[in-house]
Design a protein around this nucleic acid. Structure first.
Lengths: 135, 135
DNA sequence: TGATGATAGTTTATTACTAAACTAATAAAA
DNA sequence: TTTTATTAGTTTAGTAATAAACTATCATCA
């Protein structure tokens, strides 16, 4: 029974993601945000509080502060004080933010999808299932 | 027929990698290098020229210059001028570099392996196969 | 040859990122 | 209560990363 090489899988996967990010970065920039800002934007609805975003995205809180500031300045999100806890900021996606997010994710999906196209439909579903289990 | 959500696969995978990197970063630092330096170190034998490393790892050339400088200062690689092309530097892994690389990759494998353990053996093989197709 | 364009790697000048320290609000315990 | 500990988010201060420009070598072709 062939034992799988964890390090190799890691490296393949890492390089795959990095090359996709690198290839779409210029197009994302044209939308008026940076790739990391897009990642934040894409999680805002599910995780509307900065501290949560930092956790989910594995980035330090000060980075989230900065990205949110930029997203806010660009009109992609606005923020409210959470009534039940005055320390918390609740982030809200603006219509413009939603539109830009959709465009950005579409770019990413297109580039990643080009890779995924090497798999047939059943394999794609299988991959989705496996990655969901890992997350 | 359920169409898969490319963006969702992407996001799951991205977050998986980032959380693994974040969790092992402190231990890797204790080995005397940073995570990105480890990624460079791990590719040196297959891609001994800085420009190649930049391409394979999707990072800018000046970043490679910096990482290689540090790896050299730490005694993990040394460099020679390529006789056939005086512009090129051939990087060579030192014994110490090889040892440190192995330790670093072991840390990464352990952390990633802990996630992989959520899958049974057949599923792990399946994942390996799928990712290999994508790379 | 020698002139032109391309490539390898570095340096510089600048921007991006983040650790550490901070303020403010909440929670829990004394 | 009030004190201690925790948590949310920001600011500051310093490091990390990189785009743009540079030097040196190589390749091609007139």
């Amino acid at each position: 029974m062939p034992k799988i090489d964890v390090g190799k899988i890691w490296s393949l996967n890492y390089r795959l993601l990095m090359s996709v990010i690198t290839s779409v970065a210029p197009d994302i920039t044209e939308l008026g945000l940076e790739t990391k800002e897009l990642f934040v934007l894409a999680e805002v609805e599910v995780h509307p509080h900065p501290a949560e975003l930092a956790g989910v995205l594995s980035m330090p809180k000060p980075s989230v502060t900065m990205y949110v500031k930029r997203l806010e300045a660009a009109g992609f999100v606005r923020r409210e004080i959470d009534g039940s806890d005055l320390r918390r900021h609740r982030l809200i996606l603006t219509p413009e933010g939603r539109k830009t997010m959709a465009r950005g994710l579409a770019l990413l999906s297109k580039a990643f999808g080009a890779r995924l196209a090497r798999l047939n439909s059943a394999q794609q579903s299988e991959l989705a299932t496996l990655l969901e289990k890992l997350s």
